[in-house]
Amino acid sequence: MSEYLKSAFENVQPFWAVFLSAIMYVMFPEQAYLTAFCAVLGVMMLDVITKYYAIGCRNGGLWNSIKKRKINSNDMWTGTSRKIFAYLIIFIMVGLSYRVSPVAGAASFLGTVVYAVLFLRECQSILENLDDAGNDVGWLLTIVKKRKKKILNDEGVDDDETL
């Protein structure tokens, strides 16, 4: 028995297992939250990719952008890490709201609105990056902005008050 426990603590690393379990418990009280999180994470990655693409298009290619120091990994990482940290805090707050709310439906509604707004915000950023790169996506950008504004207005939130 002692060999088994020793092996478990050496291979599994219980600290990380407990830490990740706590994060999963807090952030994803329902399967829908995990799905929404993955969708937001996916568009966040696309946002970074399209940002590099836009900078490359404006400066004669990716390699020229790097040589001209238009693409600076430190600056990009600083902005991206700030966004990741802010979104992580928001995701934790949404998950905790589900755990402390006496009405699960209200917390689920809040989570849906928050994840939808973050998703649309990232989509808007992607479309702006594609527009900066010279692609004809202005019409789609207008639709996304209107949809985001409608969601916020329906919830009584001014667009200037959001992230």
Rank of each mutant, 00 (worst) to 15 (best):
Y53I: 12
Y53E: 06
A54N: 03
A54C: 02
I55G: 04
R58I: 06
R58A: 08
R58V: 01
N59V: 02
G60S: 04
G61P: 13
L62R: 04
W63A: 01
N64W: 04
N64L: 10
S65H: 03
I66G: 00
I66L: 10
I66K: 12
K67V: 07
K67F: 03
K68S: 13
K68R: 15
K68A: 00
K68P: 01
K68I: 08
K70D: 05
K70P: 07
K70V: 05
N72I: 03
N72R: 07
S73R: 15
S73Q: 08
S73P: 15
N74Q: 02
N74I: 15
N74L: 05
N74A: 08
N74Y: 07
N74M: 11
D75Y: 12
W77G: 09
T78E: 09
T78Q: 12
T78R: 15
K83A: 09
I84Q: 10
F85G: 03
Y87T: 12
Y87M: 05
L88W: 11
I89E: 01
I90M: 14
I90L: 13
I90V: 15
I90K: 12
F91M: 05
F91P: 11
M93G: 00
V94F: 09
G95V: 04
L96E: 06
L96W: 12
Y98V: 02
Y98D: 02
Y98K: 05
R99A: 11
R99F: 10
V100T: 08
V100I: 15
V100W: 14
V100L: 15
V100R: 13
S101W: 01
S101N: 06
S101C: 09
S101D: 13
P102H: 10
V103T: 13
V103S: 13
A104E: 14
A104P: 08
G105Y: 01
A107E: 10
S108L: 10
S108N: 05
F109K: 06
L110E: 02
L110W: 06
L110M: 00
G111E: 07
G111I: 06
T112F: 08
T112I: 09
V113T: 14
V113K: 13
V113Q: 14
V113E: 12
V114F: 07
V114I: 00
Y115E: 02
Y115C: 13
Y115H: 11
A116H: 09
V117S: 04
V117P: 12
